[in-house]
Write a protein that binds this DNA or RNA. Structure first.
Lengths: 271, 271
DNA sequence: GTTGCCGGCTTACATAGGTTAAGGTGCGGC
DNA sequence: GCCGCACCTTAACCTATGTAAGCCGGCAAC
């Protein structure tokens, strides 16, 4: 339950996300800002939606961290994507009614539910938003393809390095990274289920990567210690994220980040 | 080059495919039948489109077999999907201009190119087709998710069994399987690149699967010898394909298939 | 303050699948 | 009728990663 008042910030999350992958007109931003939202808090390790359901609303993640996963025959779990604030991980239910997988909160979340009807109205009256939302589902698929390549053809060290690069860039693009620092509240077991590895091996490799000075973590936050070497280690090339060239720039002015940057001379440019 | 005359059959392929995942009105079928197509023959091992390009047409596969792949840093290749006649594997370029991967002919193909402009007109005038095409890209993504689970969490035997189940059902749904028999013109090296395995291991496992009497092949054609055990071996559940319940039924009347069914008492029902 | 649990960490051992290399087969080209 | 080239097959050996088990520290519940 836990109903919270809907303030502008929830809509802002969505607008930021869509603006990171598409150009939005003022009218389109207004239309998005007018969407009816029903807010809820979701505790950790709870499903937002699960396999087999045919929801009549979509979930906009406002705060927290969500994983898309399937449970397989032998009790194994495969996590197929991570979702961050601004994402609508079940947007596809607009077109494909029945969920073929589940969405679970990996950290405590605030979620805004949007009725399907409101979204279908929106895309009917604003073809540009139809394009933007379709595009969003396609970017999701592009990320999925990269994950497939990651798991299919890269070794454990490359996989993890690649994943950290991706998460960092996506958080950065919606203003959720400060310098090279961000929170990524995922257990080693979850990393294993996402990467097709055992938690023991995740632990081994994570330690290697930290020992090599590529990433560091102080409890809740993760820091990229050497962005260039991390990209090289992960064979990472960000084109597949299809971010607009300046995505996230507005959240990362010199003054905005200087306050909390702690490690290194982290510059906000991403090359 | 090799321009061929456009007959009704090319449009029919597309209509069959979309009808397998969505309900089409007569007007929508007509609109699809009116699409301008530019036909070409593509030899084996040739790219239809490749990474980095920004095509202004989409490719409808009329005949043959296409693979979507990426080349990774160390010269490895990951095949991310197989595409069959009726598919438009680069439909996403309508919304995301630049290709982040390549499409290559795994067998000699006949391909019909459709100008982006014709498709954007189509979706503007026929919202139902916009829905159907969006849905098509989402079904593609659903298949991709299943592949991720396959590669991430299943062993080589399960992966291959699962793949054969999927290919069979997809071909069946568009009328390209005869009983339990179909052509799947893919080398063991390509299977390896699709499944994240070496070709040596593909060979080992394929022989096991044949020895166990799950599939058989007589040169160019593949036969599913034991559909129930193959599904069990692959932990296969077809919901993720989001096929309409009767997809393919019209191509598989009793008389239509009985002529060429050879192995077992292959019945066309899929349970 | 104690208890219990979860998440991180370690170790010892086991195996699925990779690598390399070589021989076989069929087929299109000359 | 032979050559060369894809593709398949087999073998020997190796290693990345899995499995099973247990320890430790922190934190929430009582």
């Amino acid at each position: 339950m836990n109903s919270l008042p809907a303030t502008a910030t929830e809509h802002e999350r969505l607008i930021r996300k869509l603006a990171s992958i598409a150009v939005l007109t003022a009218a389109e931003r207004d239309a998005l800002a007018g969407l009816p939202l029903r807010l809820r808090s979701i505790p950790e390790n709870t499903d937002l939606v699960h396999e087999g359901e045919t929801p009549s609303e979509c979930c906009l993640i406002v705060e927290g961290f969500v994983g898309r996963y399937k449970l397989l025959g032998q009790g194994q779990r495969q996590i197929m994507s991570f979702h961050i604030p601004g994402d609508i991980p079940d947007l596809h239910t607009l077109q494909i009614r029945v969920m073929d997988h589940s969405l679970g909160a990996l950290a405590p979340c605030r979620v805004a539910y949007i009725p399907h009807a409101a979204l279908t109205d929106l895309v009917r009256t604003h073809p540009g938003l139809c394009t933007a939302l379709w595009r969003d589902t396609l970017v999701d698929a592009a990320i999925l393809r990269e994950w497939l390549a990651n798991i299919g053809r890269r070794n454990a060290h490359q996989r993890l390095a690649h994943l950290y690069c991706e998460i960092y860039m996506r958080l950065h693009a919606v203003g959720l990274a400060e310098g090279r620092r961000f929170v990524f509240p995922v257990t080693q077991a979850e990393l294993g289920d996402a990467q097709g590895l055992s938690t023991v091996h995740i632990n081994r490799v994570l330690q290697d990567i930290r020992r090599d000075g590529l990433i560091a973590s102080d409890g809740t936050e993760t820091v990229i210690s050497d962005w260039l070497r991390l990209q090289a280690a992960g064979d990472f090339e960000p084109e597949y994220l299809h971010l607009r060239p300046d995505a996230g720039a507005e959240f990362h002015t010199r003054s905005a980040i200087s306050a909390r940057v702690v490690v290194g001379r982290a510059s906000p440019t991403l090359t």
